[in-house]
Amino acid sequence: MKISLFITCLVDQLCPQVGKATVEVLRRAGCEVVFDERQTCCGQPAFNTGYRTEARKFAKRFIEIFEESDADFIVSPSGSCTAMVKHFDELFAEDENWRSRAARIAAKTYEFSAFLVNVLKIEDTNASFSGKLTWHDACHGLRDLNVRDEPRKLLKNVRNAEFVELKNADVCCGFGGTFAVKYPEISVAILDNKIAEIEKSGADAVVACDASCLMQIGGRLSRLGSKAKPMHIAEILAAQE
C-alpha cells in the first residue's frame, strides 16, 4: 500500500520529529511512504480568516500535486488540515470540474490515527512509553472527521503506559487559528480550563493529533512550568523503549 504524506507546514517547520514518527509508524505497518516536496500549506489560515481567493489557490495547487501521485491514500498527522482538504470542494461552488476533483482527493485523504485503525486495521503499534497518557480531542478531528475512538484504542495498547481519560477532553483548547491572536484573552481563558483538567489528570503527556492544539496547550504548560508535556500521537506510537 502506497501512502503519500501530507505533512502540513506546522509539522514541517516546528515539529519535524512528528513527521519522522509518522513515517516510522506507517513503514512499520508495512506501508510504502512517499513525500512530495512541492507541497506547502493547505491554505487553512486563509480559508478560516475569510480569504477564499487565496485559499482557492492553495487548494488548486494541493489538488494538482496530489493528483499526480499514484499513491493509494494521502495521510496527514493533523485532523484540522485533513478537514481542510475535505472542505476544498466548498471553495468551488460554481465550478463542477474543480469540485469533483476536490472531492476525489478528499475521499482518499485520512487523518493518521483514523487511517491506522480504520484502513490498516491496526490498533496496536507495539509502542512502549512509560508514563501516564491522556488524550485531547482536537475539534476538527473530532467534529469534522468524527475521530473519537480510534486514538483512544491506539493509546490504550501502548506498553507500560497508563491511559487516563481527560475530563472535558472534547472541549476546545481555545486555539482556533487566528482567533488565538485576535482574541488572546478569550483564547487563554478557554485554554486555562483545559490546562486545569490536564493538571488534575496527573498525566505526564497530553496527546493530540494536531500540532496547532499542541502548540497552544504546550505553550501554556511550558509558561506555567507544568510537568505535563504535549505530545503528538505519532511520537507516542513510534516510541519503543
Binding site: 470542494d89 466548498e90 468551488f92 461552488a93 460554481e94
Partner: peptide
C-alpha cells in the same frame, strides 16, 4: 438557486 446544488451535496 445557483448555489443550492453544491450546498445540497454537503
Amino acid at each position: 438557486l445557483p448555489f443550492d446544488a453544491a450546498h445540497h451535496a454537503h
